[in-house]
């Protein structure tokens, strides 16, 4: 009787065994969401006239989006990419077994790379610095 119960419990645990691909899907989708906020932010510096109008449009589901600005669009892009890729990857990558070591190292390195690129002196050196209000004859920049 007892052996039977232990056997059944073991079976339950075995059916609950998740695939390691699920972990990879979570790591990748978190990073893609983060990268989406970084990319849209760089886009709004690279081409503000074009990007900011689109970002405001994306962010317009957030209350007071018009006062918060293009930041709402960057948040929306991050949220949609994170949750969207998570759903897709969970049903694809999540069904297979993957090696966790390269995924863990890859995620940690990519996370730090994003933190470095996002540091404004780095991306402003690659793109350019915005014109400052007190350096222009007219005042406004």
């Amino acid at each position: 009787m007892i052996f039977n119960m232990i056997g059944r419990e073991h079976k339950v645990k075995e059916t609950k065994q998740r695939k390691t691909g699920e972990i990879a899907a979570i790591l990748l989708s978190v990073w893609l969401g983060i990268a989406a906020t970084t990319l849209t932010h760089l886009w709004s510096y690279y081409n503000p006239l074009h990007a900011n109008a689109i970002l405001l449009n994306w962010g317009s589901w957030i209350p007071s989006w018009w006062a918060i600005g293009p930041y709402t669009g960057k948040e929306t892009a991050g949220l949609v990419v994170w949750l969207g890729t998570w759903a897709i990857l969970h049903w694809t990558l999540g069904r297979i077994e993957v090696k966790l070591k390269p995924w863990t190292i890859g995620f940690a390195v990519a996370f730090i790379v994003n933190l470095i690129i996002l540091w404004p002196t780095v991306y402003h050196a690659i793109l350019w610095w915005p014109s400052l209000p007190n350096t222009l004859p007219g005042g406004e920049g």
Binding site: L27, I34, T38, H41, K74, W119, P120, T121, H124
Partner: peptide, 21 residues
């Protein structure tokens, strides 16, 4: 604004996906 605030406003969003993950 251009360095401190622009960095902080994005890095402060990361804990949401990280914590939920």
């Amino acid at each position: 604004h251009l360095i401190l605030m622009e960095y902080k406003e994005f890095v402060s969003l990361y804990p949401l996906p990280l914590g939920i993950a």
